[in-house]
């Protein structure tokens, strides 16, 4: 995609993601194998799984930060061959540059090249979206963890990505801030309907945000060193914003937790 098409003043189109027979090994160790996943444009997909199951690795592949040992990834029908301007990633740590103001940190996410009036307007718009207009001039050390993570989100959205990749974005935040951030993310999705892929450990978060939850893990549960792949896919019912206390979700929650190997002591409502 050329840089000019990234500079449209309207919101960018969400792009589909298509992963076919993806595998990744680090030397002898196989981290991912046989991953097939189709993500529709505009969908919110959550990748969930135990630590070390390769969820982050999968996310990094979509963003072109890592290249697969086998298989292919397409974004919007065109293959990912390396770092890719069609996607943008936000990490668990906000990774803000401490010597830059909030505004200047968001600018990092803009497409490279000469900055024009549109770009400045874009940054102002994003800071407004993540409710940081009043803090725009501050340095990262002067703001809270939740604010920093909002800056990181705004930075990822700056280039109007077709696919937004979030690697445990709220994992380091306190419980209440995390809930507020989840709502903010859904608000952002409504305004800027990019395809979103989120990696998380948090089953409740997955069910609250996702259209589909993908459970990653060892195909043979006893042998966690082999064949890490997609174990199951859960389509979450209902429309967002969802009722966090819904009974349907409680069933799915139990199912996912069992899948993660956590005994839930859940009594089925049937």
């Amino acid at each position: 995609m050329s840089s000019s098409s990234l500079r449209r003043s309207t919101a960018a189109d969400a792009l589909s993601v298509s992963i076919r027979d993806l595998s990744r090994s680090f030397g002898e160790r196989r981290v991912l194998s046989g991953i097939d996943l189709e993500i529709t444009a505009g969908e919110i997909v959550v990748l969930i799984g135990p630590s070390g199951c390769g969820k982050s690795t999968l996310l990094r592949h979509i963003g072109g930060l890592d290249s697969p040992t086998g298989g292919t990834i397409d974004i919007g029908g065109a293959p990912v061959t390396g770092l890719d301007a069609r996607s943008a990633i936000a990490f668990q740590e906000p990774r803000l540059l401490p010597w830059r103001s909030i505004t200047r940190n968001v600018e990092v996410g803009l497409p490279r090249g000469k900055r024009n009036r549109d770009d400045r307007d874009r940054v102002i718009e994003l800071l407004d979206l993540v409710k940081l207009s009043a803090s725009a001039h501050l340095r990262p050390r002067e703001i809270s963890g939740g604010m920093a993570q909002r800056v990181s989100l705004a930075r990822a959205l700056a280039r109007r990505p077709g696919v937004l990749l979030l690697d445990e974005p709220f994992g380091a935040l306190d419980a209440l801030t995390r809930l507020a951030m989840q709502d903010l993310l859904l608000e952002l999705h409504a305004v800027e309907p990019a395809t979103i892929v989120i990696v998380t450990h948090d089953v409740d978060e997955a069910l609250y945000l996702a259209d589909r939850v993908i459970l990653l893990g060892a195909i043979v549960p006893e042998d966690s060193s082999e064949l890490l792949s997609i174990r199951s896919t859960v389509t979450v019912p209902g429309v967002r914003p969802r009722d966090r206390g819904s009974g349907d979700l409680a069933e799915l929650r139990a199912e996912l937790l069992e899948g993660l190997g956590v005994p839930t002591h859940h009594l089925s409502s049937q």
């Binding site: 963003g63 930060l65 770092l83 301007a85 943008a88 990633i89 990490f91 740590e93 990774r95 540059l97 010597w99 990092v108 996410g109 497409p111 490279r112 930075r155 280039r159």
Partner: peptide, 26 residues
């Protein structure tokens, strides 16, 4: 982490140097 961040937003070579490394070592 900051170097990777710069890379993931398309910075490399001298641009990455002036975005991340140089300010970091001031």
């Amino acid at each position: 982490h900051l170097v990777e961040l710069g890379r993931s937003y398309g910075y490399s070579g001298p641009a990455l140097l002036s975005l991340v490394q140089l300010p970091a070592v001031v």
